[in-house]
Each structure stands twice: as C-alpha cells, then as structure tokens.
Amino acid sequence: MKRIALALTLLATPVLAQDPAEAARAAASALEQASMQLDAAESARDRVRALTGTVKAYEAGLAAMRGGLRDAAIRETELTRRLQSQEAEIAQLLGVLSSLGGRAAPSAMLHPQGPVGAARAGMMLASVTPGLSAEAQALRADLDEVTALRTLQQSAAETLQQGLEGVQQARTDLSQAIADRTDLPTRFTEDPIRTAILISSTETLEGFASGLSQITSDEVPTELPPIEDRKGALGMPVQGQILRRAGEADAAGVARPGIVIATRPEALVTTPTAATVRYSGPLLDYGLVSILEPQPDLLFVIAGLEVAYGRAGEVLPEGSPVGLMGGTPDGTNPAAGASPSVEGGGAGRTETLYIEVRQGDRPVDPLTWFASDKG
C-alpha cells in the first residue's frame, strides 16, 4: 500500500496538469492515513472504516492517474502533430545547421569577394543565426518533452496496474470485514414475510417507500445527527459523472425524479451521512437497492448496485459502505482512460447508479441535498 502511495506522489509531476497532480498527492496522503488506521484498527467497525478509506483513496488516486495520463497523451499528440507539420522546415533547419557546423560565429566565415563580402555575409549571419539557434532550441525542447511524456506514460501505466490490483484486494478485504462486523446498533428487526408481501404487491418505488413502516418490528426510536444545515452540501455517495438530472428523459423517453450517475466498474458507494438502512435488496426493475433514512420523513434511495452492504434496521455511521457497482474491472487494460479522444466524455464509466430523494410522500430533486460540480 505504501509503495502505491509513493507511486501516486511521484506521478504528480510538473509534466501533468495541476489538478490531476494535486489529486494524486491528496490520494497518496489519504492512502497513507488509511494504512495507519488499518494498522491501529481493533474492532470490526474500525477495520471497515479503515478499509473504506483505503478503497476510496485508491479510487481517487486511480482517477487522478487516469487524468494525468490523459493530459500527457493529449500533450504528446499536440507536440507530435506540430512536429509532423513542420517536417520540411525541420529538415531545412537541420541542413543549415549542418552546413554551419559547430562554429557558426560570423568571424569564422570567409567570403570569396574578400573582406567587404565577408563583412556583409557576417552581418547577414549575425541576424539569421540567433533565429536559427532559437528554432533549434525550441525543437530540442519539444523533442525532449515528447520523450519525457512517453517515459511518464509507460511508468504510470505500470503504477496504474499495481493500483488496480491493490484496490481489488482492498475491496475483497472490505467485504470480509463487513461480513465480520457485528457491533452496529440496530433500530428495528425486518419481518421477511411482510417484506415479501410488500414487494409482491408493489408496482412502483413510491408505493414501496410508503409501505416501509409495515415491514418492521420491535422498532426503537433512534436519534441521528441533524443534517438540515448540510442541505445542498452532502457529498455524492459515489465518484462519477451525472448523466441525467431529475426529470430528464432517458433514451426510451422515461423520466424519473432522481439522478443517474455514471461510475467506473466496481466503484464503492457510501452513505453521505449517518442513516438507518430501511431496506436492502432487489426491488422492481431497479436492481439491488439500498434505502437509507438519515432523519424522519427523508429517504435516500440508491439503486443499481451489484453488491449491497448492510441489513435493514442497522444504523450506519457516515461514510459507511452501502455497496459496490457492477461491471468488469478495468484492470485488463492498464492504460484504460488514457485516450484523449474519449476519456473526457466519460469513457470507462460503464455503470450507472440511480439516486432518488424522497421527503414525506413525494420525491425532490436530489441536487437540493447533494453537492455536485460535475454535469
């Protein structure tokens, strides 16, 4: 883990854009902190918290590395195209420089017309030589930058592969730690028969949400930290890019009141605040769903998971894992996401997560609760 953190720091070089570089440094720092928390973890809950931080740091670091690789690839492409467009000029420049040899000073030039011709030639060369030297230096700088970019990309691809292997192991460890965790507070016990009846009699998410109180038994009041003052500032449950906002129709013309986020395969989904798990399992055509209740009459519906963590009735601390997205891990292609032509459009984000927020009996725009600077 420490080796990957060091690699992330080394990747944050001046060659890359500032944002990916800063993100890589931040991810490396987070990975180091998660490593120390993991070493100090004494309980299953502590281990889950540390491993959650580890997975999120890996994901942030890998995203930064992909961003850096993309910027490096774009820059290399720009330089290569510019050099290719100047091939004729470069050939002439090299020819002139070769003819001048290593002693291009005007005083070293002799002219067949004698001293006057030599003086005139010297004056001409005195004005031309600095320009030739500047062009040669610019060409050398471009070639050196292309070489440095290619070396960087080769090194970063290897580091990226190590990071992908590391995050896969961290996800496996996290799943096991969650399975071993038994110390979470429980607010109620789910009645499986009532749950099955509710699911079979429900045709809409709204109908299911309104009947959630019917599937509980032995419920005890539980006060969670208020979040009204954090409205509009809660972090997104997953790293990704918003594909559709509330009310926007999909390709089939279906409009839903939630948002759809494109994520990378096996991305970790966490709860943005402490919440009670009201339901966790398959539901209608939404796939695996986790319904969280951070406060009375407020539900966060998170749908489209491949793996769901947490059991109905459990009270999850803020930042706890809710589940994992599906898809094939992109470790089969270490340079995935480095293509300058497609990465900016969300390539590599092959999975979609649906988030709906319900207050009382009606849905509200999730972005009134969650902060997002990505469109």
Results as ranks from 00 to 15, higher is better:
residue 351 E to T: 09
residue 217 S to K: 15
residue 166 G to R: 00
residue 110 L to F: 03
residue 363 P to S: 02
residue 213 S to V: 05
residue 121 A to Q: 10
residue 62 L to D: 04
residue 346 G to T: 01
residue 161 Q to L: 12
residue 262 A to N: 12
residue 105 A to K: 04
residue 98 S to N: 13
residue 271 T to P: 04
residue 102 G to Y: 07
residue 208 F to I: 07
residue 366 P to N: 01
residue 182 T to G: 06
residue 6 L to K: 08
residue 32 E to A: 08
residue 181 R to C: 07
residue 331 G to A: 11
residue 340 P to N: 00
residue 369 W to L: 05
residue 273 T to K: 02
residue 269 V to I: 15
residue 192 P to A: 12
residue 23 A to Q: 02
residue 319 G to R: 09
residue 334 P to R: 10
residue 141 A to S: 08
residue 174 L to G: 01
residue 341 S to I: 10
residue 94 L to P: 00
residue 266 E to L: 15
residue 208 F to V: 11
residue 290 S to M: 05
residue 371 A to R: 10
residue 110 L to G: 01
residue 156 A to F: 00
residue 297 D to H: 13
residue 245 R to H: 15
residue 8 L to D: 01
residue 218 D to E: 15
residue 112 P to W: 11
residue 224 L to N: 14
residue 333 N to W: 01
residue 130 P to A: 04
residue 262 A to S: 11
residue 273 T to L: 08
residue 44 A to W: 12
residue 344 G to F: 08
residue 170 A to R: 03
residue 28 A to H: 02
residue 147 T to H: 06
residue 171 R to V: 05
residue 58 Y to E: 01
residue 181 R to Q: 14
residue 205 L to R: 11
residue 201 S to A: 15
residue 135 E to A: 07
residue 314 E to K: 03
residue 241 Q to Y: 11
residue 137 Q to F: 12
residue 342 V to F: 10
residue 114 G to H: 08
residue 311 R to N: 12
residue 220 V to K: 14
residue 119 A to K: 07
residue 324 L to G: 03
residue 136 A to Y: 05
residue 11 L to W: 03
residue 269 V to N: 09
residue 120 R to T: 05
residue 63 A to F: 00
residue 332 T to I: 10
residue 62 L to S: 06
residue 156 A to W: 10
residue 200 S to Q: 14
residue 212 L to W: 13
residue 337 G to S: 03
residue 179 A to V: 03
residue 217 S to P: 01
residue 177 A to E: 01
residue 250 D to A: 12
residue 330 D to N: 02
residue 265 P to L: 09
residue 225 P to E: 12
residue 198 L to V: 14
residue 248 E to D: 08
residue 297 D to W: 10
residue 369 W to Q: 01
residue 127 S to G: 06
residue 285 D to M: 08
residue 189 T to K: 09
residue 321 P to N: 12
residue 375 G to N: 04
residue 222 T to C: 07
residue 293 E to P: 07
residue 190 E to K: 10
residue 295 Q to W: 02
residue 332 T to G: 04
residue 109 M to P: 00
residue 84 Q to R: 15
residue 329 P to G: 13
residue 120 R to E: 08
residue 338 A to E: 08
residue 65 M to V: 07
residue 183 D to I: 12
residue 103 R to K: 09
residue 124 M to F: 14
residue 280 S to F: 04
residue 178 I to N: 02
residue 105 A to V: 07
residue 365 D to N: 12
residue 182 T to I: 06
residue 139 L to P: 07
residue 309 Y to R: 04
residue 30 A to S: 10
residue 83 L to V: 14
residue 256 R to Q: 11
residue 336 A to F: 13
residue 252 A to T: 10
residue 7 A to K: 07
residue 125 L to T: 03
residue 98 S to H: 11
residue 43 S to I: 08
residue 290 S to F: 00
residue 243 L to I: 13
residue 107 S to L: 13
residue 352 T to C: 00
residue 165 E to S: 09
residue 51 L to Q: 08
residue 50 A to Q: 07
residue 179 A to N: 08
residue 95 G to D: 10
residue 213 S to Q: 09
residue 109 M to N: 01
residue 120 R to S: 08
residue 119 A to Q: 13
residue 178 I to M: 11
residue 16 L to K: 01
residue 146 V to P: 02
residue 246 A to R: 12
residue 280 S to N: 09
residue 47 R to S: 01
residue 287 G to Y: 10
residue 357 V to F: 04
residue 314 E to G: 07
residue 277 V to I: 15
residue 102 G to Q: 14
residue 194 R to P: 00
residue 104 A to E: 02
residue 116 V to F: 13
residue 222 T to V: 12
residue 261 I to V: 15
residue 131 G to Y: 15
residue 34 A to G: 00
residue 207 G to S: 09
residue 143 L to E: 02
